[in-house]
Design a protein around this nucleic acid. Structure first.
Lengths: 187, 187
DNA sequence: ATAACCATGTAAATGGTTACATGATTAG
DNA sequence: CTAATCATGTAACCATTTACATGGTTAT
């Protein structure tokens, strides 16, 4: 599953322009499990169009480039269903914030604090963002995904807030298990 | 931060071969926030070697290719610290499982159930894996990262288990808010 | 027997990010 | 006046994944 499939998915929620799809990825219901920039959305949309999985209506505007509103075709919906029917790949996650915390003992305390603080904000903003999605009348799958996102973000934010001290306190001298010691049993 | 930086990080825990670094990524302390395959680890290690950020000792073995044990140099440690001192990028997460759940109404119920079940196992296995890392005597940052991973995986697994029914139940007829309805206010 | 483990690596293909290119409108 | 929003797109670059290539050992 790549940006093409996700664009099909976004369009299954309603017609949209590339610009609007980007917003769905970054603010809407997809934000906590997918993202993509213009550089992948526009080419994806053009490929889908070439494959007749979407159609496009151009709407002229004054002072702006024409707006291109895309709609899913029957073939597009079928392709989406086919993608969705495969075995899912394992989640792919990459967190520089956690990496930095993990190696916190190599960092200055103020930097550690800065990272922690903005990571808390990141999860709190994420919660707000998900809470703003009204689940009323939505299919169960979407409500389920929303709830999962909320549960995970909430747990992360709470953990970070409640364990601040652990990250910000200095390592005990005895715990400076660095290269030397570990190298010992590896070599 | 790319695979090169993460290899430096892995080597800061002790000397290791490419093969061992892979295992750290997939089973060890890094598993919940980073991963990489041989196809990115071996080239990364060779670039680091060319840049004198690591050294390498070749150990001959019978019936196998020579083992290459890498060690961090002073310059390597400095480079790691420099990478770690930057502002972290936002987390990058991509979940096909959540995507499939989100579009659950387009899927057969047995497939939905299969996805859910193996996603629960994924998080439970993740918990086990993290629990097997002994935090005793480790620097605070590592204990903090371990705790965060555990909290998040636990929350995800628990949510999935407690809300199974929501995903597996059929959508009410009135909630079949599909293309037509949403299209209405978008167009 | 068969699978998993040990152990390295390359080349091609895939796919995503970033920078560039353009430019009017609107809200603070 | 400045920043943000609307709106599209391409090209160069970067990084990762996948398939290929090799092959003995050990556990089931």
């Amino acid at each position: 599953m790549d940006t093409k499939s996700l664009c099909l998915g976004a369009l299954s929620l309603g017609d949209a322009t590339g610009y609007e799809i980007k917003k769905i990825f970054e603010e809407g219901s997809f934000s906590h499990f997918y993202d993509a920039g213009y550089g992948s959305i526009y080419p994806a949309l053009n490929k889908l169009l070439a494959d007749n999985l979407v159609t496009c209506i151009e709407i002229e505007q004054e002072g702006r480039p024409a707006k291109k509103v895309y709609s899913l075709t029957d073939a597009g919906l079928a392709a989406l269903k086919a993608d969705l029917s495969k075995k899912p790949m394992r989640d792919k996650m990459r967190s520089e914030s956690i990496t930095m915390m993990f190696f916190g003992h190599l960092l200055e305390k103020p930097h550690r604090e800065e990272i922690l603080q903005s990571y808390i904000e990141y999860f709190r903003d994420g919660c707000d963002c998900i809470e703003n999605i009204d689940p009323t009348g939505q299919p169960n799958g979407r409500r389920f995904a929303r709830g999962l996102g909320l549960a995970v973000y909430e747990a992360a934010a709470t953990y970070l807030e409640e364990n601040k001290d652990l990250l910000l306190s200095d390592d005990k001298a005895g715990a400076e298990t660095n290269v030397a010691e570990v190298t010992g049993d590896a070599a």
